[in-house]
Design a protein around this nucleic acid. Structure first.
Length: 464
RNA sequence: GCUUCCUUAGCUCAGCCGGUUAGAGCAUCUGACUGUUAAUCAGAGGGUCCCUGGUUCGAGCCCAGGAGGGAGCGCCA
């Protein structure tokens, strides 16, 4: 019977020594002398590596020639207690097979430090680094934790469309989806492009948000969430924006603003706790390597209630702050990054939820407050990354919603399907959007959002 | 889109006031070393100084334009 492959993770945590094992993975390093060689292997199951020892009596120089940095190998041998310091167990190799060679002269990944900017240019190989291995494992854990959180609380996962016929969602610039020939599209009599001849018989785009469709589902299933790709064709060049990113959008019937805040806070604390529990080694590595405050900051999020205050209260605090701001604070204008950072990092020193923004600076679907000046919006602000969640209680009143759409020049006829929820059995409801990569950014302590997604898309870049 | 900084060996970076044959560490290759931990030690090979044009006796260095990248800002998640 053939020996089953063990992962590095299984071998390192095994109490069962002096048995034959088989490991397969990629060589991180080989060193030694003419009597003994040490082969360091990682297989992605953990950030840690396992050491295989090859004695010269069994392995000629020639047989290990191709066992170099980056090569893929299968190693069979005895799992034994290590004679050396630095690891508890190691494999005394009896058979080393090279599954895939890696030319040492050409292999782009070095054993020593390589900049994150350079790794971005070789994004097809960067998962083999410690850093990206850790980031991708944490990313997975967070994705899994999101589904678990909602499933455990009776939410249904709803798949909203990626191609949308609506261009009025108001969340940002959209990417057009078309099969018309770009050099010579069919035209109508007045010279405009004739989209009636396009694939869908109309103009279509990639979604900027699943929220409107999510609201439809919540008006039937009660509690739902979406988790899917989202696209923004904005020329945003920052460490916090991507043209293609993943968004989580829960929507809950009968929830009002207060319950929406409770959900957002529980959700974020749960996810940070989930990552701490399931990825301790990866987070420890990221803490040691990139951000010595990371674990402290994560614990701070799980251990402290978020500070809740209204936009109006925040403006008062900022106006009386001793700190000089580049942009003046005035009621009615949106807060700048510097203002949000002051509130979170200097004034409260904890995550902040800002609510009840002026209606002029928020979306048409947010519920109007009694005073007629503000809406039941909420933004969750995190240290370092700013807005991680944006949400609101939705306007459930048909007439008021129509009025808001008219004020903000949102075409009601294109959104008749959305308005139908208010015409037939409307109900109070609330939800929010969480940018998945911003969460991964916060939890990993990475500083650029392009380093927390395998293949980032941003202006002038769609490689791989 | 705006502001600002950067681009020199495979990688990370020095390079003085514009001066003759452009450097270091790591990586690679060769050799040494009986258990290494980013092994160590010795030696060798390795360059379109981002591109185009200009100034100058002479440009990696100064000037103009272009390309690419970082940071900050705006838009937002």
């Amino acid at each position: 019977m053939s020996l089953k492959r063990s992962t590095v993770q299984q071998l390192l945590s095994s109490q069962e020594l002096d048995r034959e094992v088989l490991v397969k993975g990629w060589v991180r390093s080989r060193r030694g002398n003419k009597y003994v060689q040490f082969i360091i292997v990682n297989d992605g199951s953990t950030i840690h590596t396992i050491q295989a020892v090859a004695n010269a009596e069994q392995f000629s120089e020639e047989s290990l020639r191709d066992v170099g940095n980056g090569a893929c190998v299968a190693i069979r041998g005895q799992l034994v207690a290590s004679q050396g310091k630095g690891q508890a167990v190691e494999i005394q190799a009896t058979e080393v097979t090279v599954l895939g060679k890696a030319d040492a002269e050409a292999y782009p990944l070095q054993k020593k430090a390589t900049s994150l900017e350079h790794l971005r240019e070789i994004a097809h190989l960067r998962p083999r680094t410690n850093t990206f291995g850790a980031v991708l494992r944490v990313r997975h854990a967070l994705a899994f934790g999101i589904h678990k959180f909602f499933n455990d609380r009776g939410f249904y996962y709803v798949h909203t469309p990626i191609i949308t016929g609506s261009d009025a969602e108001g969340a940002g610039q959209m990417f057009r989806v078309t099969t018309l020939p770009p050099d010579n599209p069919p035209r109508t009599d007045d010279g405009a492009i004739d989209y009636s001849q396009d694939f869908f018989g109309k103009q279509t785009n990639l979604t900027v948000s699943g929220q409107l469709e999510g609201e439809l589902a919540a008006m039937a299933l009660g509690s739902i969430y979406t988790f899917g790709p989202t696209f923004r064709a904005e020329n945003s060049n920052t460490a916090r924006h991507l043209a293609e990113f993943w968004m989580i959008e829960p929507e809950v019937a009968f929830n009002e603003l207060e319950e929406n805040m409770d959900l957002a806070e529980d959700f974020l604390q749960y996810l940070v706790r989930y990552a701490l529990e399931h990825c301790p080694d990866d987070l420890q590595f990221l803490n040691d390597q990139y951000d010595k405050e990371l674990l402290t900051r994560l614990s701070f999020v799980t251990d402290n209630a978020f500070q809740r205050l209204t936009y109006t209260e925040a403006v008062e605090i900022l106006k009386s702050a001793k700190q000089k701001f580049e942009f003046p604070v005035d009621w009615g204008t949106d807060l700048q990054s510097e203002h949000e950072r002051y509130l979170v990092e200097k004034h409260f020193k904890k995550p902040v939820i800002l609510t009840n923004y002026p209606k002029e600076i928020k979306a048409f679907y947010m519920k109007l407050d009694e005073d007629g000046r503000t809406v039941r919006a909420m933004d969750v602000l995190f240290p370092g990354i700013g807005e991680i969640i944006g949400g609101s209680q939705r306007e459930e009143d048909y007439e008021k919603l129509l009025g808001r759409m008219a004020d903000m020049h949102v075409p009601a006829d294109e959104l008749s399907w959305y308005l139908d929820t208010r015409r037939f059995g409307t109900a109070p409801h609330a939800g929010f959007g969480l940018g998945f990569e911003r969460l991964v950014l916060f939890v990993t302590g990475m500083s650029n959002i392009r380093d927390v997604i395998p293949f980032p898309r941003y202006p002038k870049n769609a490689e791989f």
